[in-house]
């Protein structure tokens, strides 16, 4: 049975693209990948308008960035308000905390409707990219 499950895991791209994780309370404590995360890479991901596009809704404390959105809360000080584990769960799938959450799940492929075939079975961010963004946001202490 276990072998069959593992095989299914490997054979289905939708699953293969999403790292397994365990939610504890309102956090996801364990990093999704063992490789060391990079806050510098995370900063680039946050600012990238083509992939994560975080700044379409959030503002970061960086005077070089213009035209940041205000649909979500400002990210200044998020590293003081939330632990890395809490940040991680909010990136991976905020609807686990609030079913009505407007923020997209950045590391989820199941339970979505009418996904553009180009993105079907792929999360917005890879497990490594999630870890990089967690590392960057955790440093935004004020």
């Amino acid at each position: 049975m276990r072998a069959a499950l593992v095989l299914l895991w490997l054979a289905t791209p939708a699953f293969a693209e999403v790292a397994p994780f365990i939610v504890t309370g309102d956090a996801l404590e364990a990093p999704l990948v063992a490789a060391p995360a990079s806050a510098a890479r995370g900063e680039a991901i946050v600012k990238n308008r083509e992939t994560a596009n975080c700044l379409i809704c959030h503002a970061i404390p960086d005077p070089r960035e213009r035209f940041m959105g205000d649909v979500g809360p400002p990210l200044a000080g998020v590293g003081s308000r939330l632990t890395p584990g809490q940040i991680r769960l909010r990136l991976v799938d905020p609807t686990r905390l609030n079913a009505e959450a407007i923020m997209p799940a950045y590391h989820r492929t199941e339970g979505l409707n009418r996904v553009d075939p180009r993105y079907l079975g792929r999360p917005v961010l890879t497990a490594m990219e999630i870890e990089d963004v967690v590392a960057y946001l955790a440093r935004l202490k004020e």
């Binding site: 035209f67 609807t95 997209p104 979505l112 409707n113 009418r114 993105y119």
Partner: peptide, 28 residues
């Protein structure tokens, strides 16, 4: 009202609840 797409958003989540706020430089 149906959430859709990889970003899992319904029309109403932006155009009811968040009208008047900004997506980048654009007002919803």
């Amino acid at each position: 009202e149906t959430r859709q797409g990889q970003l899992n958003l319904s029309c109403g989540q932006c155009h009811d609840a968040n009208a008047g706020r900004r997506l980048r430089g654009d007002v919803i």
